[in-house]
């Protein structure tokens, strides 16, 4: 499999990047910080036994939700544009690899790199939880890690997709930054404004379905839904914010996986389409 060959080579190359090592260290600091915070909170509540391990695992969701997209975009945005800029893409495509093998191989290889980063960060976080709290359910932890890697894949796909659509790493970087701003800042703000315009208030007792759907379809929300689905918990999902008995399908926790898949497939598809006909 040509894409696998490309992925393996790409993984070997990208895993040696110093930037990645720096980001992983930063991520580990965040997870340890999350673990420390969790243990502190459980002491505050004065009821440590009631603190389920799932809740502790969930304290890692915030740092992961924040840093994984950034790590994945940084790892992804240069994947193809960078090789085009430097000229190594000609070496790569001079060997028996189709352009689509290169795009798919890059997504796989860089996801592998991000997965290592997540794995290292979470393992250190897990050790922190053991040290601060004492016990954690390993099954939950593994499920949580797996969903987070899937989340990483989505943002790698967005980064590599952007990278395949331009010959300049600068433009790819601007694109990646715009994606961060879009999902971290603009998405929520735009939703609130829409809510005000349509419903006439910033806070409503029972939000309309369109608002629930809107708030469920960003990749970050889908990550929360998917975690809620695998851990059978409602805390990380949107629904928990409101007291609603029946959710629209799109806002159901399990549907988070569908949304994540779409967020991975669309940028890959656009990247493949554009990269396939362009002059190198």
């Amino acid at each position: 499999m040509s894409a696998i060959t490309v992925a393996k080579k790409d993984f070997r190359d990208a895993i040696r990047s110093r930037v990645l090592i720096g980001l992983t260290v930063l991520f580990a600091l965040f997870t340890v910080g999350g673990a420390a915070l969790a243990s502190w909170l459980s002491e505050l509540s004065d009821d440590a036994s009631a603190q389920s391990t799932i809740e502790l695992v969930l304290t890692l969701q915030a740092p992961a939700g924040f840093l994984v997209p950034i790590i994945a975009l940084i790892v992804g945005y240069g994947a193809i544009a960078g090789e085009r800029e430097s000229g190594s893409l000609k070496f790569l495509l001079g060997l028996p690899h189709r352009r689509r093998d290169v795009v798919l191989g890059k997504v796989l290889g860089r996801t592998g790199v991000v997965a290592v980063s997540i794995f290292v960060g979470f393992t250190i976080g897990l050790l922190g939880l053991f040290a601060f709290v004492g016990s954690v359910s390993l099954t939950d932890y593994v499920a949580f890690t797996a969903v987070t890697i899937l989340f990483g894949l989505v943002y790698v796909a967005i980064g590599v997709g952007l990278s395949a659509m331009t010959r300049s790493t600068t433009r790819a970087a601007v694109g990646a930054l715009s994606v961060v701003i879009l999902f971290k800042v603009l998405w929520g703000t735009a939703g609130t404004i829409l809510l005000y315009v349509i419903e006439g208030a910033f806070l409503v007792e029972s939000p309309p379905d369109w608002y629930l759907v809107y708030n469920a379809i960003s990749p970050d929300a889908a990550y929360g839904s998917a975690i809620g689905a695998v851990l059978s918990r409602s805390d990380p999902t949107l629904a928990s914010a409101y007291d609603i008995s029946s959710l629209p399908l799109v806002a159901e926790p399990w549907f988070g996986f569908v949304i994540l898949a779409i967020w991975a497939a669309v940028p890959i598809g656009l990247g493949l389409w554009r990269f396939d006909y362009v002059d190198l």
């Binding site: 080579k9 070997r12 190359d13 040696r16 990047s17 430097s86 000229g87 190594s88 000609k90 070496f91 001079g94 060997l95």
Partner: peptide
């Protein structure tokens, strides 16, 4: 077998 002009290698490999 191809030796393209302006092709570069992977610095880290």
């Amino acid at each position: 077998g191809i030796l393209p002009e302006g092709a570069t290698l992977y610095d880290r490999l």
